Amino acid sequence: MPIAHYGVLAARAVDRRREGASDTPHYQIHLVDAGGTHFRAAVNVESQQAPSELLYLVDEDFAHPVTALLPATAAGWTALPSRAGGAALDFVRDKLLDRSAMRTLPPDLPGADNDLADLLDRQVLRAIDDPGAVLYVFGQRWPAEPTVPDKVFGFRPGNGVHDVHMNQGNSGRFTGDDGVWQDGALLIHLPGESRWTAVFLAFQSQSWHTDDRTGHTAGGPLPKPRGGTHRPHPAPRS
């Protein structure tokens, strides 16, 4: 069945944590909405299935009708119905990204600007430094844990969003998460610069040929990712 609690979190980023040394490495983002509720976004930087490196695409001048459907402020969590015509995302059925432009990156390496954590750092730190920036984290919300502090940032109650990646065309034990119009992503609105940045992530083990009803792999060859080389992104605009 599809993921259970799909939606989008609109909030301000206040901190981040790189976690590369674990069984399931994630890039962790601490966010706070306009009402003062704290959230953690857990963003995968490595796959549990081979190949381990994720596909990524960063669009630093993202233009798409979905941005007009999102809350204008850090409004917190909004549940989204998984269907066309609203704010729900679908990498296969919507014109969100150019699949052929995706590349692969290792999760976390010594040195600068050479891994997926570095790439996320570049975008998230820019948002943390900009008091007007709002992050929109698409994915699945996990239930609030009133008696348990967040395991990364320590706020209480524990609360957050994960599955911030493509959520269809899975294989093996992850096929139960398949669905249409329920893909995860990170959008960053920079109103002072009048622009949006989008970060899209997918696993190389996922198929881009999926059933229009179930999101399961529909057969046919799995498109091969291009390259595997990392090209530094251009310097931030002034």
Score class of each variant (00 low, 15 high):
N114Q: 12
L31I: 12
V58Y: 10
A63K: 09
G160A: 12
N44M: 10
A74E: 03
D33R: 02
A68R: 12
N114I: 11
T104M: 14
R156L: 15
L105G: 02
D115Y: 08
L120E: 06
A88V: 10
L69M: 13
H38M: 15
S47K: 09
L135Q: 04
V134C: 05
L69A: 14
V92P: 02
A87Q: 04
R141I: 05
A112K: 03
N114V: 08
E53C: 13
V137Y: 06
D118F: 01
D118H: 11
L89V: 13
L109T: 12
G139E: 04
D94I: 03
A74T: 07
A74M: 01
P157A: 04
L31Q: 06
G111K: 00
P146L: 03
D129G: 06
Y136K: 06
A133Q: 08
L105V: 07
D115R: 08
P71M: 09
H64V: 11
Y56I: 06
D59A: 07
L119N: 10
A34M: 15
P131F: 05
A87H: 07
L31D: 06
P107V: 09
H30T: 07
P157Q: 07
Y136I: 01
T73E: 15
M102A: 11
A68C: 08
T73P: 05
V124M: 01
F39K: 00
L120F: 08
G160M: 04
G86D: 10
D61V: 04
E46G: 09
H38Q: 13
I29H: 03
E53M: 15
D115I: 10
P107D: 11
L135S: 03
T147S: 14
L89W: 08
G85K: 04
P65K: 04
E145K: 15
F155I: 05
R40F: 12
V152A: 02
L89N: 11
W77L: 05
G86H: 00
R126S: 04
G85T: 05
L54I: 01
W77V: 11
D108F: 11
G160K: 08
A42Q: 12
L54D: 01
A72F: 13
G86K: 07
Y56S: 03
D98Y: 01
G158V: 00
V137H: 09
L119G: 01
G36P: 00
Y136R: 00
D130S: 02
E46L: 10
